[in-house]
Amino acid sequence: MSETEQKLRSEARDLLEKGRVNHIIGYEAGSLKFSTTPLITSDKEDTDRLVINPFINNNLSVFLGEVGGKAGIVARGCDARSIVSLIQDKQLAREDVFIIGVPCGGIIDLDKVEKLTGLDRDEIDDIAWQGDKAAVTIGGARKEFPAKEVLTDDCLSCEPPDPREYDLLIGEVGPLVTDGELGRSKIKELEAMTPEQRWEFWKSEFSRCIRCYACRQVCPACFCNRCFSEETEPAWISPLPRWQDNLVFQAIRMIHVAGRCTNCGECERACPVNIPLRSLSKKMEEIVDELFHYRAGTDKEAPPLMAAYQPEEAEDFIR
């Protein structure tokens, strides 16, 4: 157990014991190799199960709206920004959440490891950081991969990886290897295409969508009581998972979360049919930044992006 983990467990226990929070939302070991799973509890004994490792991939802030009372939540950099964003959107009061910040060293993308090794995750024996390399053990043999090759794209372009809004910070601010250009390489490929090619690309991606709505359900920025996709009068999109409607659903979802999406990457990770949703969310982040110099969840006093305006704003596209 790492020192960070130890500290986290005792702090979490203490918070529950002293009644400073009603719930702890963190991660515990999952039931599959290299998996973790959300731990949502009000029982202080459960805090002994809390973990921090390179596989804590859920954005836990999605649960904040569900638990009653005050919640103590384990937050990485992107999660902390999601929490701030929820506060900006008045989905959450700052005093109802106790943010246990954990500076993040980056999440290992198991899909990338699978690609690099040609094996599925359950066939790999061990994955561990070895300095700035990931050591992967398979049947006794060890291979090392540079961090850049195994970190998730979101982590490669994460900024900042350490939470800026917190009540308690646990652990050292780790050196996260970032490489923004590498992290957006899929986007670059898309940008180099003609509109027609791009459309064909997304058409083929969304032909696979089964409309499980996991992307929406795991997203902290998708907090509507009733999503437009479920409205029936009028029905904006068909409930049948046709590529056309799947594409409209995702395009509109991305527009809805503009300025609130922190690029946690959770939607892409959740998608069972591997649609590169992050190539949409990341691009949206760039558009928002370029046009309005706005970054989601960086200032809890700032009005939400779409609720604000400046009289002077780019309007070169308006006749």
């Binding site: 791009r198 527009i255 779409m306 308006i318």
Partner: peptide, 20 residues
């Protein structure tokens, strides 16, 4: 002003998806 924000984001984003 609000429409302008929405429009500029929508336009750029849809262009990225492949809408001329």
């Amino acid at each position: 002003y609000r429409a302008r924000r929405r429009m500029s984001i929508t336009k750029k984003f849809l262009e990225y998806m492949g809408v001329e």
